[in-house]
């Protein structure tokens, strides 16, 4: 427990949390080690945890028959993984597969949600952390959609590159 508190305290993501809030999170967390190719979660599976990667990397993937598997984003140490635990019906939208031996802090979603209901300040502080990652990922997704390196038909024709 104390070791987990230290890990969470020293994690850049949680630097804004008070020691009391860190303790609350640590009581709902565990460290998991994963081999290459392990599925942390699968599409439509129950979103009963969320994670902060502390080592390694994970590919967020989607798979469909006849279409294959597409990796949409690679997450690395320091990244937060999983939002579906916050919203009913608490089911994952994508697959998350490790790309190398990895380690993560896994938080128990149901008990964190319960704590949110009882302690709104705790909920607010944790939600701010999650929302920061959501904002970063939305910005990144928008940049991906822009297809910045592709041909732009409206480009004015100047080219220095």
């Amino acid at each position: 427990m104390k070791q987990l508190e230290n890990i969470i305290t020293n994690n850049e993501n949680f630097k804004t949390l008070s020691p009391e809030h860190v303790k609350e999170l640590a009581g709902r967390a565990s460290i998991i080690d994963l081999e290459t190719g392990a599925f942390m979660f699968c599409q439509d599976g129950k979103a009963d945890h969320f994670y902060v990667l502390t080592k390694g990397s994970v590919g967020l993937e989607i798979h469909a028959a006849g279409w294959g598997t597409v990796t949409m984003q690679t997450l690395r140490s320091g990244d937060l993984l999983g939002w579906s635990w916050m919203f009913p019906p608490y089911r994952w939208h994508f697959d998350a597969k490790t790309l190398e031996p990895s380690q993560a802090i896994a938080f128990d979603a149901a008990t964190v949600r319960d704590k949110f209901k009882k302690d709104s300040d705790f909920g607010y502080q944790v939600m701010k952390i999650v929302a920061t990652h959501m904002m970063d990922r939305i910005v990144a997704a928008r940049l991906q959609i822009l297809d910045l390196y592709g041909k732009n038909p409206d480009h004015q024709g100047y080219a220095i590159r």
């Binding site: 990397s57 590919g59 990796t71 949409m72 984003q73 690679t74 690395r76 790309l99 970063d136 910005v139 990144a140 940049l143 991906q144």
Partner: peptide
Amino acid sequence: WRGNVGVVTS
């Protein structure tokens, strides 16, 4: 492709 996927800013 087994490398990184995502924008360079990330």
